[in-house]
Amino acid sequence: MKRLISALAVSTALVTPAFAQDTQVIGVSIPAATHGWAGGMNYFAQAAIDRLEETYPQLDFVLATAADPSRQVNDIEDMLATRNISALVVLPFESEPLTGPVQNVANAGVWVTVVDRGLSVEGIEDLYVAGDNPGFGRVSGEYMVSQMPDGGDIVVLRGIPTTIDNERVAGFEAAIEGSGINVLGMEHGNWNRDTSFEVMQDFLSRHPQIDAVWASDDDMAIGVLAAIEAAGRDDVQFVLGGAGMKEMIQRVMDGDTMIPANVTYPPSMIATAIEVTALGVVSQTPVSGEFIIGSVLVTQDNAEQFYYPDSPF
């Protein structure tokens, strides 16, 4: 679906060449690269900006990465006050603290695109581009059910306690309900390799038989795999990660039995958002509304389409 949008953007770019307007500024505010997914998101944001600046000489981009919500608020306020932005693409660190500042930006007549995490008040943004967290959980759960038709015992590693994590887990639980799959334990691995390594070690000590692991994230899956390998346990049949890290996609492509599949939650959604926003700024194309990027199951059959060797994620 991302490809579809890129294609749309490119074709529009061809339709409206060099519109010779005054330079317009688009602000992009995203969290800093503190974990793998965010690192990928930073990469795609930068790549999209480089590409668009070349395509549309009349566009100027301001990219700001913030390490915490309050700094992100500062970034956004600065963009409005000093850079005279025409549009803002924001991936909010957290919904609550960013709602007010983004609303101010919208009230100033600036186009607002919100990515991934919705704001607390509806109707502020002109465009909403997001992944599908309940869907991410549901697709993962459905895959688990399909792989274990007779049921089985699994453990689950959760991310940092947030709405995103809760929605994913709720979707997952709904999908496996009544399937005979029994969740032995759920602990927070905080989307961190080291933490999930230790959590998985303890799961292995605690449960003599684990059939599969839903690691729910590729960084966590790496920690989980290392722990299983170190313990020399062969009862675990497979680990399902998520988000589409290139190393993991590679292993799916190669037919690794421990990593038979992946579920996308593409960090490139930021690029989608930036491109569509740019399109809206330079042309009359209607782009407002919601744009939900579904989570797709990646298996050996389709893995090649989801492999981006240049991305850091």
């Binding site: 690269a33 503190t34 793998g36 690192g39 961190n192 390799r193 080291d194 790496i222 920690g223 290392a226």
Partner: peptide
């Protein structure tokens, strides 16, 4: 050698 990787989340 444990995980063979380092990121900005290492050693937090």
């Amino acid at each position: 050698p444990r995980l063979g990787s380092a990121s900005s989340a290492t050693g937090l």
